[in-house]
């Protein structure tokens, strides 16, 4: 069921990205044919969201030091970014207490403009890994190792800070392995197992741009749902991405 949805999603979004790239490369080709150094943006100049831009910058009326800003140069309207998310999930691992599990992620983003002032769409992909474990006795440990991957869509507001709201859908591949030492003499092999399950989430962040938007530091708070694991619903992290 999930695989069908994922394939549907990919079919819908990837051609859009390809179309976006085609447009950008088409513009460059046009410029080359005309002998121009760059393609002129012929959109009305009073549209607040449409100045010629680079990086994630949009509105030139914002202050120099804090806003995402357009860089001079050719009009490249399709903005990419990649980076890391230092994240922790809050998991109920002890009867009444929680365990903060370190779950770092690699992220990749592509920004596109929306026909609304200062509003952008951010398409993303995320890969995470964790082998962080709660406290367990020496002679008996159940080690959970997770790989996660997701695709996501976010709405981003370009301002002095850059708030975002993200919706993500993905998969978690988990391996459970038992480590037992004497005086535990034997382990039923059925305890070593693998799980694969859905992972979806809503994430809110407030991005702090630096170097005119080339870097974005974004604390995030995420509510997530793992279809077979009730132990965790909340996570938080610090995303650091670089754009080009």
């Amino acid at each position: 069921m999930f695989l069908t949805r994922l394939i549907t999603l990919l079919i819908l979004t990837i051609p859009s990205g390809m179309a976006i790239s085609a447009t950008a490369s088409g513009d460059k080709k046009l410029a080359d044919e005309k002998g121009l150094d760059s393609v002129t943006d012929e959109r009305p100049t009073d549209e607040p969201n449409n100045p010629p831009g680079n990086k994630r910058a949009v509105d030139p009326s914002l202050l120099d030091d804090v806003a995402l800003r357009p860089a001079s140069g050719s009009a490249n309207k399709w903005n990419y970014a990649a980076g890391l998310n230092l994240a922790w999930s809050i998991r109920n691992d002890y009867g009444a207490r929680s365990f903060r599990r370190f779950e770092p992620e690699a992220v990749g983003f592509m920004y596109t403009e929306l026909p609304v002032d200062k509003l952008w769409l951010r398409h993303g992909a995320r890969v995470g890994y964790s082998k962080d474990q709660p406290q367990m006795p020496k002679a008996l440990r159940m080690i959970e190792t997770d790989w996660k991957a997701s695709i996501e869509e976010a709405v981003v507001y370009n301002w002095y800070v850059v708030p975002s709201l993200t919706f993500g859908l993905g998969y978690d591949w988990r391996r459970v392995s038992v480590k037992a030492t004497p005086p535990i003499k034997s382990v039923d092999s059925r305890l070593n197992t693998k799980e694969t399950f859905m992972w979806n989430y809503i994430q809110a962040g407030v991005g702090i741009p630096a170097m005119k938007g080339e870097y974005l530091l974004e604390p995030v708070l995420r509510w997530q749902h793992l279809s077979i694991d009730r132990r965790t619903n909340w996570a938080f992290g610090f995303e650091m991405t670089k754009a080009w």
């Binding site: 949805r5 549907t8 999603l9 819908l12 979004t13 859009s16 179309a19 976006i20 447009t23 596109t112 403009e113 929306l114 026909p115 769409l121 398409h123 996501e152 869509e153 919706f167 993500g168 859908l169 979806n200």
Partner: peptide
């Protein structure tokens, strides 16, 4: 293309 992308992204969000 931009309009199409907006519609498609909305569909993706709805799917999620």
């Amino acid at each position: 293309y931009k309009s199409s992308l907006t519609r498609l992204s909305g569909l993706a969000i709805a799917a999620m």
